[in-house]
């Protein structure tokens, strides 16, 4: 017994030399997407960190893929950036072959395939895909790093997922809310744009207060269904002070869905 204990101890001393290369890193930050009836909001903060170090205050995590699809990535930044690059490559070949942009439904399935193809050396990335479905409804698809996915009304991922998702469950899915007998529980995914943007901003400002890895800047991409009025975004006073709206021109033929980039600052401490 004593002999055994001694050798076990020696093992413990010998083992530490195994100082192995870890190919992963967590770069913090948070992403969030909420679908409306005829729009979709996809948002992310712009901080990139490693442990206690803020690497940069501006690194994008949200990417416009097509005229009606936007992708947010979170997790290991290098994997995220390279995954988005690969997705965009595939979309370009698709467009060359078919003379049209890929639908959100197809992009979602393609992303599953691409993630699962690296099942045993995964992209350490949580993806949220938002945009407009072929039938004109707002859509959100969320993924885990190895490709499981589903369509939802909303999803938060990343460092502050545990702070934001319960809030969304309450505000979007109306969980733990009671409604009077004469007022039925609303169907999730039908809130007006102003309300949704308010929820997104509140989610991020709150997460910034309580999570060290969230902050610096907020980018919210808003994809509007074809023919939808946009004055609830662009008209004067539609948005709170300090929020800047910019329309991103179409990538393809145009004349259909419209995408806007809405920015504001977050606290930098």
């Amino acid at each position: 017994m004593a002999l055994f204990a001694a050798s076990a101890q020696q093992e413990a001393v010998a083992a530490p030399i195994q100082h192995r290369f870890d190919p992963y890193e967590d770069n913090g930050g948070t992403i969030l997407s909420i679908a409306g009836a005829d729009f979709s909001v996809i948002a992310g903060d712009t901080r990139q960190s490693q442990g206690y170090n803020i690497q940069t205050r501006y690194a994008r995590k949200v990417w416009q893929l097509t005229d009606k699809v936007v992708l947010a990535t979170n997790g290991f930044a290098a994997d995220g950036a390279n995954f988005v690059k690969k997705v965009k490559q595939r979309l370009e070949w698709y467009e060359n072959a078919h003379q049209k942009q890929m639908s959100i439904k197809s992009i979602a399935r393609m992303i599953q395939t691409m993630l699962y193809a690296k099942r045993f050396f995964p992209y350490y990335v949580y993806n949220i895909l938002g945009g407009i479905e072929e039938d004109g409804t707002g859509a959100v698809y969320s993924f885990d790093p190895v490709g499981s996915y589903e369509r939802e009304a909303c999803r938060a991922a990343g460092a502050a997922q545990s702070l934001i998702q319960p809030f969304l469950d309450n505000q979007i899915y109306f969980r733990n809310q009671t409604f009077p007998a004469d007022q039925p529980k609303p169907i999730p995914g039908n809130l007006p744009l102003g309300t949704v943007l308010g929820l997104v901003i509140d989610s991020f400002t709150s997460a910034t207060e309580r999570h060290i890895e969230v902050g610096d800047g907020l980018e919210m991409y808003v994809v509007m269904a074809k023919g939808r009025a946009v004055d609830d975004l662009t008209s004067k006073g539609a948005l709170p002070e300090g929020v800047v709206v910019e329309e991103l021109g179409p990538l393809g033929e145009g004349g259909g869905e419209r995408t806007f980039l809405v920015r504001r600052t977050l606290k930098r401490d």
Partner: peptide, 10 residues
Amino acid sequence: EQASSGAARR
């Protein structure tokens, strides 16, 4: 040219 085309605008 068609003003809406993304390629033309760029």
